[in-house]
Design a protein around this nucleic acid. Structure first.
Lengths: 156, 156
DNA sequence: AAGCGATAGTTGCATCTGCAAGTAAAATCC
DNA sequence: GGATTTTACTTGCAGATGCAACTATCGCTT
């Protein structure tokens, strides 16, 4: 395997890697301090919020929420226990389940978002100007498009 | 809490967040496929590799390796069981332990790095030119400097 | 130098996560 | 149309991780 990684890319990678863990930890800490659920709950609820009729098949939700299917099953168990979503057997496929966001789930999203948004602004956004933000988005869009071709269309 | 997050920053954040999980998963999968240990092992070993005399106090290593102290204790247990590091009681502080990288640990790093480097190049670096890489590094440096003031000096 | 609060590291327990195996239903094959 | 393969989700189990409690030591105070 030949040397194939320019120094600027390696440098960018190391800082990207560390910054991600630091920001995640800081935001999670803010959520805990506010008595709110973690980002993984938000991710799942938000996927449903954006989906047509606020529901998704379990597998689709797992993909969007960055979890394995088994991980999602457990998460959905907890969300359902809190009445934030409901499981509904899929009418056109007896094997499948829909996760359906409830009104309480929407309300939960609305409680999380201000804290999450403030964290993004404080730990991430505050360190860049508008041009830099657009630049970052451009590069990350390319990365996501390569690693998860189906994701892009689903997100916008 | 007022609306305080420009759309460009939110967009950058969402793609940053997803891209990080996708890249991490892809690299971890490559490491597993190559029969190599995970990134968390690499992180810890690499911290030691860069440290003076290839050793660090447990707490310092935990900070650099992005782990809690308890998490580090478990990780060090495993690394020591594999003879990649050694625990040594700290001469100037009887409470403290040094984690000391062994030759076998260095060799392990050298086996991981080609796969890791290829993953960084393929999933991350390939999607940006040199100017973009520098731009990203600049922004992430600011983020890390804010969230972890001590880190920057330690890294360069 | 004895006491006391602070610090370094470890361990118990609970949580999260994934892989692989299991169950159920659909799709395909013959 | 009955059997086999595939797909969708769930569950058993094992690994990773963090918080809080614990032990041991340090360093400051008096």
């Amino acid at each position: 395997m030949k040397k194939e990684l320019p120094a600027a890319q390696l440098d960018a990678w190391r800082r990207y890697y560390v910054s991600f863990w630091r920001i995640s930890a800081a935001i999670e800490a803010d959520l805990v301090a506010a008595g709110l659920p973690s980002l993984s709950w938000y991710d799942a609820l938000y996927q449903l919020y954006r989906a047509p009729e606020r529901r998704l098949r379990m597998s689709d939700l797992a993909r969007g929420a960055l979890l394995s299917r088994s991980g999602l099953t457990r998460l959905v168990d907890k969300l359902e226990a809190e009445k934030l979503i409901e499981r509904r057997t899929c009418p056109e496929d007896g094997r499948g389940q829909h996760a359906q966001l409830t009104d309480k789930g929407v309300e939960c999203l609305r409680r999380i978002w201000p804290v999450y948004r403030a964290g993004i602004a404080k730990y991430f956004g505050a360190q860049m100007n508008d041009a830099e933000a657009k630049q970052l988005a451009t590069v990350f869009r390319r990365i996501v498009a390569v690693l998860d071709p189906g994701m892009d269309e689903a997100k916008e």
